[in-house]
């Protein structure tokens, strides 16, 4: 039982990160109908910017919360600027092109970001300086560190804030309107371009936060860390129902838990035939099954056009 609870805890922490990244995918997909392959790499940039700040300030004697805040701030500023400029330069001119064009552009941007990062930060694995020393406590027989708890709570808080922003504020309403029908939203006096920029701004900001979390939790950063994370997060977004903010949160958490439980128990369940080596297969299998059986995802609305 302890083991089971522990696996759920593991899954929730991993899922929090997936969920934050998935939000970026889901928002962009909802509004542009585009899989922003570069989103995972924006997370990477956020992580590496954060690491640079940590390295620069780790010996400065500043209080730890301030260092954290500065790192998050720097990462957010860089990622937001990056996200908005990518949309402006690479995606906006292609808004009316056939669907394949922006998708391939996104792959190109992803490669560009990775190798630009390799130039800036080198291709070494960058360790996190000793900044935090997490303390451990026990919940229901499972070990949880305060860092894990903080990641989970912060992710939930950010997501709740985003949900409020999208459902309750004027700008959020404009975003939803743009998502439903760009032309009509434009006629209603909404500046479509501004709203799309804003979507990228928010999505990239969340990516920065997720990047910092990855760095704090795993203690490691690398220029190629974003792609697989991005794929998993996209899977989470699809699982929850792409274009749906609540779906992304649910999908992220679920995918985290599925991965944890699958790699923890599949060996026993299949008599040792499948082991934890098939962990990544589960994520993709979930993706295929959801798309084939329920393309609108768990919380999405059934829509013939997307499927």
């Amino acid at each position: 039982m302890d083991i089971f609870v522990q696996q759920i805890v593991n899954g929730l922490v991993l899922g929090s990160i997936y969920a934050l990244v998935a939000l970026g995918y889901t928002m962009v997909y909802g509004i542009l109908g585009l899989i922003n392959f570069a989103h995972g790499d924006i997370v990477m940039v956020g992580a590496l910017v954060g690491l640079s700040v940590f390295h620069a300030l780790s010996g400065s004697g500043l209080p730890v919360p301030l260092v954290l805040l500065l790192a998050v701030g720097a990462a957010m500023v860089v990622c937001m600027a990056l996200g908005v400029s990518i949309e402006r330069l690479a995606y906006r001119p292609l808004r009316h092109a056939p669907r394949l064009a922006p998708l391939i552009t996104a792959i190109g941007v992803s490669i560009l970001l990775q190798y630009s990062a390799a130039l800036v930060w080198s291709k070494q694995y960058i360790p996190m300086p000793e900044l935090l020393s997490p303390t451990r406590f026990t919940v229901l027989g499972a070990h949880v560190t305060d860092l894990q708890a903080a990641i989970f709570l912060l992710a939930c808080g950010v997501m709740a804030g985003l949900y409020w922003f999208i459902t309750k504020t004027r700008v959020g309403t404009a975003m939803r309107a743009t998502e439903q029908n760009k032309e009509v939203a434009g006629l209603m006096g909404i500046d479509i371009n501004r709203i799309i920029s804003l979507t990228f701004l928010v999505g990239s900001g969340l990516a920065a936060v997720a990047g910092i979390m990855v760095v704090l939790y795993y203690g490691i950063g690398h220029y190629s860390m974003g792609f697989i994370l991005g794929l998993k997060a996209f899977t989470a977004a699809v699982l929850g129902g792409i274009g749906n903010v609540r779906g992304a949160m649910l999908g992220g958490m679920l995918l985290g838990i599925i991965e944890s439980l699958a790699s923890g128990y599949i060996g026993d369940l299949t008599g040792g035939f499948f082991g934890s080596n098939y962990r990544d297969v589960f994520a993709f299998l979930v993706l295929v099954l959801v798309l084939v059986l329920r393309p609108s995802g768990l919380l999405g609305q059934a829509s013939g056009e997307r499927a």
Partner: peptide, 16 residues
């Protein structure tokens, strides 16, 4: 247990 040379999350297999 097995992981990959790209993974950074081992909590599931370590828990097991």
């Amino acid at each position: 247990e097995h992981t990959t040379d790209k993974d950074t999350d081992f909590t599931a297999i370590l828990t097991k």
